[in-house]
């Protein structure tokens, strides 16, 4: 077996170890690579900035599951921080079963930094089964969709719900999602029929699929995975879970590109030799 064959048949565990080492080094010793803010992230920030705390209510949709949470949860943390900082009333709701528990984590994080009153500034309504059907049902009557919130408090008497009888009473929707239901369902049941401003925080894998809806203006702002969270942290001026991992992300990409190049070089040299 020549060295080219050996190179092509390198043990997979060597590849795994290399990836692990390359990702861990910058986590221990950050490189501080500057981060440019994407236009779609800037738009989400601007939309939140434009909300009027005295009048506007935001709908904070927690539609992510544990599998994709490392990509989306940092987005939810920083956007919630921004909403709390601006004093915008925020209603949290979930159409994915894990959502309410992540919402509690977000509330815990935000309440440590800002003086928020549960039921007045923020509420975690809980989970509604039925995916797209549930979104339609909630949109038509958000005030009656839940009799009790996730913490078992009666919803009707909460100050935060005052004046909310239809989805059009919501000024801005930000939907954090890992898959279905996600932007497709919201565009079909809410943004399309009622024209409510809709922004999304999605997993990196789904970004290319969402682009037609960003171009058409149906999705008004988009947070693109962990990088989207890091960019938002830069805008808010509160570096957190996203920014800390961006250096490792960079080196990880370089390594994968290195793998592709070495793999191809070995393949073509070997092929040439065989001819």
């Amino acid at each position: 077996m020549n060295w080219l064959d050996k190179l092509q048949q390198i043990d997979r565990r060597v590849i795994y170890t290399l990836l692990l080492v390359v990702l861990l080094i910058p986590m221990f010793r950050p490189l501080g690579i500057p981060l440019e803010v994407n236009m779609t992230t800037q738009k989400v920030y601007d939309l939140v900035q434009a909300l009027d705390p005295a009048r506007d209510v935001a709908l904070f949709v927690m539609d992510y599951s544990p599998g994709g949470s490392p990509d989306v949860h940092p987005q939810a943390l920083i956007v919630a921080e921004h909403l709390a900082q601006r004093g915008v009333r925020t209603i949290m709701v979930s159409f994915v079963d894990a959502g309410p528990m992540f919402a509690e984590q977000v509330l815990d994080h935000v309440s440590k930094k800002y003086d928020i009153v549960y039921g007045t500034d923020f509420v975690n309504l809980g989970y509604l089964a039925g995916m797209e059907t549930a979104i339609k049902n909630f949109a038509e009557a958000p005030h009656t969709a839940f009799e009790r919130d996730f913490r078992n408090n009666p919803v009707a008497s909460m100050p935060i719900m005052a004046g909310i009888t239809h989805i059009t009473d919501i000024a801005f929707i930000i939907d954090f999602q890992t898959g279905d239901p996600g932007y497709n369902a919201f565009l079909k049941q809410v943004q399309g029929p009622y024209g409510v401003t809709y922004a999304a925080g999605i997993v990196t894998v789904s970004v290319p699929n969402a682009m037609p809806f960003v171009q058409s203006g149906q999705i008004s702002g988009l947070l693109q995975g962990l990088r989207g969270a890091a960019e938002y942290e830069v805008l808010v001026g509160s570096p957190g879970a996203g920014a800390a991992k961006m250096d490792a992300q960079s080196l990880g990409h370089l390594l994968i590109i290195g793998f592709i190049i070495v793999g191809n070089v070995a393949y073509f040299l070997n092929k040439k030799k065989a001819v």
Binding site: L23, G68, T204, V205, L226, G252, I256
Partner: peptide, 8 residues
Amino acid sequence: GRISLLLG
């Protein structure tokens, strides 16, 4: 995306 999940 996959690297992000691993980093988490």
